[in-house]
Nucleic acid binder design. Structure first.
Lengths: 143, 143
DNA sequence: CCCATATCTATAGTCGATACAGGTTTAGAC
DNA sequence: GTCTAAACCTGTATCGACTATAGATATGGG
């Protein structure tokens, strides 16, 4: 049985984050030592590693809640998991496209700046006037 | 002079967001009508459009605070604005690289899934075992 | 047995908004 | 001039996903 600190070390998830996951019901309530400290077994490590990996892939905690429910029921068809992953892929692709537009815009801004006075600064000017943009990058900043 | 609703319409920034910006000091306190409603002039529209555009380009509100201070002082050298924009470009490029790794991983997960039962689902399996990943995508999810 | 480290709970703060409740002002139709 | 619906006001709470803090308790190595 592992302490919360060892679990943290084994999974790379910070201690307060593990407690937070338990609090919101993403992890089951951990068993306790005589001194009321949390104790974890092997399956707990795997469950948390699954969560961490899914977070790295950009899944929301709600998505992960669904995925965990699916993973716990191996007889179900996996179309639902597919759907969640597909949704995630679409979101990632959308973010990619918008970020590419942003990158182009920022590069253009910087390339034009002659590093003179603010009055001549293209960075400030472009920010003040969307019409100077080469792209439509609305709502590109999110997530 | 424009009401807050007209300002919102003119800039695409939602009414509560405008009040929020005023609250955190990003916008100066607006003048008021006899009935205590906020009134805005032309320069206010430009300032808010500047903020909106910078937000779209992914600048944080703190970055924008700096950029506004620079924009208000046209005699200053623009190296500082350059620096902020360069920082932003680096952050965008980092996000892009990580998102590309994510996209590849999600595509791989989905391509391998035969849409059978959960027990055979590659999506679930890959999420449970980072070793199956082709890429290192740690911390790719953020922002 | 001691003490540094780890753990416990509860609460507040982060960022960038957004939502809501309950009240007031304004603008347009009649 | 009056009515009413829409827009506006303030203040507070909520969102997601944590992170930080304070003050108390438990554990483990020397």
């Amino acid at each position: 049985m592992l302490s919360i600190g060892k679990l943290s070390g084994a999974t790379g998830v910070k201690v307060p984050t593990i407690r937070y996951y338990e609090q919101i019901g993403l992890l089951p309530r951990a068993g306790r030592s005589t001194g009321n400290q949390r104790l974890y077994d092997r399956p707990a490590v795997e469950r948390l590693a699954f969560i961490r990996h899914a977070r790295e892939l950009g899944f929301s905690l709600e998505d992960i809640r669904e995925l965990l429910a699916l993973a716990d029921d191996p007889e179900k068809p996996c179309a639902a998991a597919d759907l969640i992953a597909g949704r995630q892929l679409a979101a990632v692709n959308a973010r990619l496209r918008r970020l590419e537009a942003l990158r182009d815009e920022l590069q253009r801004m910087l390339a034009q700046c002659t590093s003179g006075r603010i009055a001549d600064c293209r960075v400030i000017e472009v920010l003040g006037n969307h019409a100077l943009c080469a792209h439509d990058h609305a709502e590109a900043a999110g997530a």
